[in-house]
Write a protein that binds this DNA or RNA. Structure first.
Ligand SMILES: [Mn+2]
Ligand SMILES: [Mn+2]
Ligand SMILES: [Mn+2]
Ligand SMILES: [Mn+2]
Lengths: 217, 217
DNA sequence: AAATATTTTTAGTCTTGTCTAAAAAATTAT
DNA sequence: ATAATTTTTTAGACAAGACTAAAAATATTT
């Protein structure tokens, strides 16, 4: 069994390994969890003793098989609860993250199993992220950044990279949501900003925005 | 804002005041929380500083208005989640308590509000206990112990005093559930055991069982 | 009204998870 | 290859929440 703090470390390392492969640095973990490197060193020693990760001084850490499964199950719960909040309790996609951060630590295998069934075994959460199964497996949707499209190409929005309330509200305001068709009308070579057509309306978005939207084409 | 531990103390004191009035002793709190009296003394000092209870050395503690509301809101969440688990996720009434003990600490006013609405604003939980409103108010159902009935009297089961898995499973096994009519056929004067008729069947229950079942007549 | 028993508080210790400051190792620049 | 910089670890401290053992206050007997 893991403490709340241990679970948060495992999840952070899991996400970091997802992005940048194995051998996650103390500093990377510290900045993701908004804590200090020295605290991370202490904690990874403890987690190494519990066999959920391998730690070699000055070399960073890597999750073991068991560590990956444990972390994926927390992510599974996080995303199932996000679906619940949006589908059943009228939350919008920018309101769910903080509550899910709490709910993901509830310990009850039956609860997770039944919640999954109650929601109809969803495959993705409200931000387009895949929901791992009980064993921690999930199929990664093939997707590209909107910024990788060329002029006159089209795609369907299937996810976001940044799930902050700020960014999601910006998307809402501009009619961009999951499943929406996006057409790139033109690209400004000077600053990489795009003119796009979405939901019948033309709008201009910065390159920063375009690198936080995933599309399928 | 209160820590998990502080919330558990507040809830315990709230329940103790419910039963035995004001001025709750250190020992009573300790035994309810399965901790030591010395730990309780430390904690009530802290809670007194936070103005949620009044503490006078050697005199026990009493919740303030604000303490009562805070505690009632935790109880509100506990019971709403119990309803959710039974009504929506196929839990039985003997499986919900431990999970609700975790869920009651989730902090999100919107979540509580929406959950309440999603469940259709239930007035009681799966054990017949009333669900406080946001302000901490709730109407106490008038009810008596089954053991207070005389021979040939009847009542309807409206609650249980003990919500342990053990006891609830015993009730299930014998067809006793909320809303069920119970008729007292005879009372054995030697040990106070009762012969009752419930769901068409006659069965004999000990006096201890009878003092843990609430009925309305 | 003492004496005894019980309850409650205090004093001191421990664990978990965090922090700052300093030391050590690894990396990058000259 | 040395020096400077950055990253990581160690050492020591702290707060929260718990515990044990001992002291103090209260309650109960005789
Ligand atoms: Mn999230
Ligand atoms: Mn999400
Ligand atoms: Mn309960
Ligand atoms: Mn209940």
């Amino acid at each position: 069994m893991f403490t709340l703090s241990e679970e948060n470390y495992l999840k952070a390392i899991f996400h970091l390994e997802m992005m940048s492969g194995t051998g996650i640095s103390t500093n990377a973990i510290a900045s993701k969890l908004e804590t200090k490197a020295s605290s991370v060193t202490d904690m990874v020693k403890k987690l190494a003793e519990k066999q959920v990760l391998v730690y070699k001084k000055y070399q960073g850490v890597s999750l073991t098989k068991s560590g990956k499964t444990t972390a994926a199950r927390i992510v599974r719960k996080h995303r199932l609860w996000e679906v619940f909040l949006v589908e059943k309790l009228n939350f919008s996609w920018d309101e769910v993250h903080d509550v899910a951060e709490q709910l993901e630590h509830i310990k009850s295998p039956k609860l997770t199993r039944e919640l999954d069934a109650f929601l109809g075994f969803p495959k993705t959460d409200p931000h387009g992220d895949p929901i791992p199964d009980h064993e921690g497996r999930f199929d990664s949707v093939e997707k590209r950044l909107l910024s990788s499209l060329k002029e006159n190409e089209v795609g369907v929005c299937v996810g976001v990279d940044d799930s902050s309330s700020n960014f999601l509200q910006y998307l809402d305001k501009n009619g961009i949501s999951l499943g929406e068709k996006i057409e790139v009308l033109s690209i400004e070579s000077f600053d990489g900003s795009l003119s796009i057509k979405v939901a019948g309306k033309v709008l201009s978005i910065s390159s920063k925005i375009a690198t936080n939207i995933y599309i399928q084409s």
